[in-house]
Write a protein that binds this DNA or RNA. Structure first.
Lengths: 341, 341
DNA sequence: CTGTTAGCGCATTCAG
DNA sequence: CTGAATGCGCTAACAG
């Protein structure tokens, strides 16, 4: 590796001047600057990232912690983060927590050891977990730049963003109710997953609003995987008094329900209407196309990266942003069968 | 931030000893060691990653360059890479090249500036591009640890792995021929994409093997996106003498073809058989389920990470591995409609 | 077994 | 405008 000293030597000057010249900082005569640039190029000089970082205390790297990159809602979010980050000169480190609080904490610890400039925590159950809240507080106090995505409970000392899960669920449920369904099954996520809880609350509130009794027997708890949607959906459909509509807390499970309905020979939406949440790519490819709640994934990612990097670039701002994005219900054939052209 | 010096001071010793104690290196008395550990814990000491890296010349980070994380074949590969990397103590930096050679080169340059210990290049057209080949050679000579995935043309001075694209395509095509199709449309990828070229060769070889004339008119060039599969598939199907089978160079385009067929009211596979390549998750969810060529994505990622990290941990080994994995044809309803239970 | 010393490569003082 | 000196925090080599 060629160092700044070698460049300085060949250019008959010193490291300080080379540094200033190459970084366009401070004064340096046009002529010496040109000379230095020529020599640097000839020697194929490239600054040593680590050394520079050690000095400047900036790595130009942000870390992203998400439950699982293989979960179809994340790639697009990640792409949004990456594009914005690259645009602003940052690289992106990505790790999976599998939504395990211990793992999230472990990763937060690793990344806060001065290897990255900031961290985006796309939390699983996340902020709902006490240990994680404490960890976040601690990091924030230690000056670690952090943005939390997903569900945010308290006024944590971080910037955060999430979509309005309650509202989204409320609205799809209302859509189903308006179609005349009064027995709607809900397939939730893991009991401790805050996102699922919120969606469940939205579902419940909509029922209430329509004067329909909330009934525990119509709520099943899955794990956000297709298999669980399939199993629980099948169970719902095989009951003596099966619900006429099923709303799953995410699209992946909703697709499982569609497969179950198909297997049982139930027509969708005539015999059973099905709705999901997320609007993953495949929601509009599967047949029937899936009614769901759409969140602008790419934009969420992009916005998250922007918030984080902005936070990185300012000192001691103790007012935190809390952005809650409005979701949008997308009505498709799985609840309403009518061609619109 | 608390440094090693503060720990040393409180423990009434010096930085060297603290370093040895905390890293379990060299000799250090049990007692002093315990003391140091206690103090370190009390002060909440955590080593400064950059400083350590500058000294040891290791970052414990690997970089991954892929065309696009939002392309459904990548998340699983990435997950394989991440899991293996984490297991071995590495973090993973991920960037998208959008299969643009200039972008690949740019990213290779950035990452080789001592910010990562090694690079996995999951190339788009990649090794087929002269500039990239040169770049790879240069980096290899400079001692940068590199593993290239995807299609590999020459005996480049790097480890590499890819699946046998030719073989996979050959076999699905043979499958179609054996079903009696003798007019098989092929939807390729971009003309400069080596992967697509190889798959096309496999298609062609299978035809030849069955004494069927290869016909340019039966080959269309897409861009690996669903939309192009849809458009080109529709075009094939609306011809006066439409092919009775269509083989697309990847699943995403094949799904586009399925949608086109559906829209035109053609029954699959009775009126048109459809096959893809990759076996993405959705290939088995879409109806009809898609016949395709399966590659063990998670394992590919895991293996790639393993190769790279092994390479990182050895000095000056100038013999390079070239692994070519065997793909497997998965027959589903889109070509062969029969229930098997 | 432990303390001292040096230096990784750079950016930033501070004199001049 | 430029050179010299300093130190970011750590580990490794060496002397004791």
């Amino acid at each position: 590796m060629t160092t700044i000293y070698e460049v300085a030597k060949k250019a008959r000057t010193t490291s300080g001047t080379v540094s200033r010249a190459l970084n366009n900082k401070g004064y340096v005569a046009e002529e010496t600057k040109r000379k230095i640039e020529r020599v640097a190029k000839r020697l194929n000089y490239t600054p040593h990232f680590l050394a520079r970082s050690l000095r400047t205390k900036k790595t130009d790297i942000i870390a992203v912690i998400i439950p699982n990159i293989a979960n179809p809602i994340y790639p697009e979010i990640i792409r949004g983060i990456q594009d914005k980050a690259h645009e602003l000169g940052y690289q992106v480190l990505i790790s999976n927590s599998d939504a395990l609080p211990e793992r999230e904490i472990e990763l937060l610890t690793i990344f806060s050891q001065k290897r990255v400039d900031g961290i985006f925590l796309g939390t699983g159950e996340g902020a709902e977990n006490k240990k994680i809240r404490e960890k976040i507080k601690k990091l924030s106090e230690a000056g670690i730049k952090l943005v939390v995505g997903g569900f945010i409970k308290d006024k944590l000392p971080t910037d955060s963003l999430s979509i309005d899960n309650f509202q989204g669920a409320y609205e799809v449920t209302k859509h189903l109710l308006n179609l005349g369904h009064n027995k709607i099954g809900f397939i939730s996520g893991p009991k401790n997953a805050r996102v699922a809880q919120e969606r469940q609350k939205g579902y419940r509130a909509a029922l209430l609003n329509h004067n329909i009794l909330y009934h525990d027997g119509l709520v099943a708890y899955g794990n956000f995987q297709q298999e669980s949607g399939y199993t629980l959906g099948k169970d719902f459909l095989q009951r003596e008094k099966a619900p006429s509509a099923i709303f799953a807390a995410n699209d992946v499970m909703a697709i499982g329900v569609i497969l179950a309905a198909e297997e049982l020979g139930r027509r969708i939406p005539e015999e059973v209407a099905i709705a999901g949440f997320d609007d993953i790519t495949w929601a509009s490819i599967i047949r029937p196309r899936l009614t769901t709640v759409s969140q602008p994934k790419y934009e969420v990612g992009s916005l998250a990266a922007e918030m984080l990097i902005q936070r990185i670039n300012e000192e001691n701002n103790r007012t935190f942003q809390r952005i809650i994005l409005k979701p949008k219900v997308v009505i498709r054939e799985s609840t309403l069968n009518q061609e619109k052209k």
